[in-house]
């Protein structure tokens, strides 16, 4: 993917707007864009970018849209590149995009909806995992995360 230089920059500007919370120390965090997640993207699956693999286990930040959550307050939501019009958990013919990020929040938090853009900071985890409660399978996650509206 192009645009690596852009995504590599530290996101002082975005995260400066965050209030005092675990997200606020984001000035030290590397920012990963959705466009920078993968180095190849094909029918037989994706390969994560080398930079993403290298950042696994470290705290990073990402910006995207919160998919309509299952409950108003939760420790779990899905971050998408574009706003989702549908709740993938609730509709039978949901068209769930593949490039998504699962966010596990540090604590149960009221979740913003209406396609709000959010910035999330958390510990990056790469690898296949089925959520023990919902069975939802993800390949990349942020743990111990917090978010703010962008």
């Amino acid at each position: 993917m192009r645009g690596c230089g852009l995504s590599r920059r530290k996101v002082l500007t975005v995260l400066a707007t965050l209030s005092a919370s675990s997200v606020a120390r984001a000035d030290d965090l590397e920012f990963i864009s959705f466009g920078g997640l993968y180095k190849s993207f094909g029918v037989l699956g994706y390969e994560f970018a080398d930079r993403v693999r290298a950042l696994s286990g470290k705290r990073v930040s990402m910006a995207g849209y919160m998919a309509p959550p299952l409950t108003a307050e939760s420790t779990f939501f899905v971050l998408t590149r574009e706003p989702l019009a549908i709740c993938p958990f609730c509709q039978s013919d949901a068209d769930w995009p593949v490039d998504i990020l699962v966010v596990y929040l540090e604590q149960a938090t009221p979740l913003v909806t209406a396609g709000a853009k959010v910035v999330v900071a958390g510990e990056l985890e790469v690898g296949s995992l089925a959520d023990p409660e919902t069975g939802f399978v993800s390949q990349i996650r942020l743990r111990h995360a917090a978010y703010r509206r962008a």
Partner: peptide, 22 residues
């Protein structure tokens, strides 16, 4: 709709098991 053919350990898979239908 390839993701449901790929084992769950493959990034981009939508399966819940390691079956590789391709």
């Amino acid at each position: 709709g390839s993701p449901n053919f790929l084992p769950k350990s493959t990034p981009g898979s939508k399966r819940a098991d390691e079956e590789n239908f391709v």
